[in-house]
């Protein structure tokens, strides 16, 4: 088994960078359309020609995307299209095999200091919440600030309570994750990520594991967060959220960035056949 994998890895590594060098194409075939409110904003995330392989399966194929400060980007695509892999590469839960990723002027490379710096600037919310089941809600939120930022306990707890107020469940502070509903757990997870005072928030299908009646409470929190000026990248199938909140939609298929544009562009006049097919299936 490992032998096969390593052989495939070698092929992937030799093929990846070469392909980029040969084609040298523009970040996207289509000019990026930024919302007018972001005209003068600086680039928060720059990804150029990013490739990612799992064995001999190419999960990301030459993905280039620039995201502005305070921009809300929603990533759409069928399952297996690489959209989760893309945002997981942004805080290095997955390592990209080729291309460049720059977050807030820090290049993501072999330097472990860069990794630490980026992880404390990028918050992440997972589909399965991934709260720490052995810690209370409050401790889940204070863990990062106390251990990574060396924040005094009282200060961290005050911050945690403030965040729990913000996501609407201060009364759950002393409970354990297993005692909460899915929607409440996901809101705690958002508070946990916010406690590190990140500049960017990544959402990996945050409502996909929730019962329908709990989706709204999570989306409301995300919308409030978007309005507060957070830079957000959201992988989701919630078209209502995409239409109302996003500055830009990005469509992935088979690991490649197929089309991007404003919500209006997507829902009225998508250009690519694959985009049209996908939208017709989920709308």
């Amino acid at each position: 088994m490992p032998d096969e994998l390593s052989a495939a890895d070698i092929i992937a590594e030799s093929a990846g960078p070469k392909a980029v060098a040969e084609t040298d194409r523009a970040p996207s075939e289509e000019p990026e359309q930024f919302s007018p409110r972001l005209a003068n904003a600086r680039d928060m995330i720059i990804t150029e020609h990013v490739d990612k392989w799992f064995g001999d399966f190419q999960a990301l194929d030459d993905v280039s995307l620039r995201i502005k400060e305070e921009e809300i980007v929603v990533i759409l695509g069928p399952s297996g299209s690489g959209k989760s892999t893309y945002i997981r590469c942004l805080n290095r839960l997955e390592e990209h095999d080729a291309g460049r990723i720059v977050i807030d002027d820090i290049e993501l490379n072999e330097d472990v200091r860069a990794l630490q710096a980026i992880r404390s600037e990028v918050g992440m919310v997972f589909q399965q919440f991934n709260l720490f089941p052995h810690l209370s809600v409050l401790s889940n939120i204070t863990l990062g600030p106390q251990k990574v930022r060396h924040m005094p306990k009282l200060e961290a707890e005050a911050l945690a309570m403030q965040l729990l107020e913000r996501v609407g469940i201060p009364e759950q502070a002393d409970k354990f994750p297993a005692q909460l509903s899915g929607g409440q757990q996901q809101r705690v997870a958002i508070a946990r990520a916010l406690a590190m005072q990140p500049k960017i928030m990544l959402f990996d299908e945050p409502t996909s594991a929730l019962d329908p009646e709990m989706i709204k409470e999570v989306l409301d929190v995300m919308q409030e967060l978007a309005e507060s000026g957070m830079t957000m990248i959201v992988v989701t199938h919630e078209m209502g959220f995409a239409r109302e909140v996003a500055d830009r939609l990005v469509f992935f298929d088979e690991g490649a960035l197929v089309e991007q544009g404003t919500p209006e562009h997507f829902f009225t006049n998508p250009r690519e056949e694959r985009t049209k097919l996908f939208l017709s299936q989920i709308l």
Partner: peptide, 27 residues
Amino acid sequence: LPRGQTEAANAVGLSAYQRMTLVILPQ
């Protein structure tokens, strides 16, 4: 343990040692 525990610990910014002693081993 679910892989998500390691990923969440990484995403919060814990070091490998903190991840082991604060998240993985207690569970």
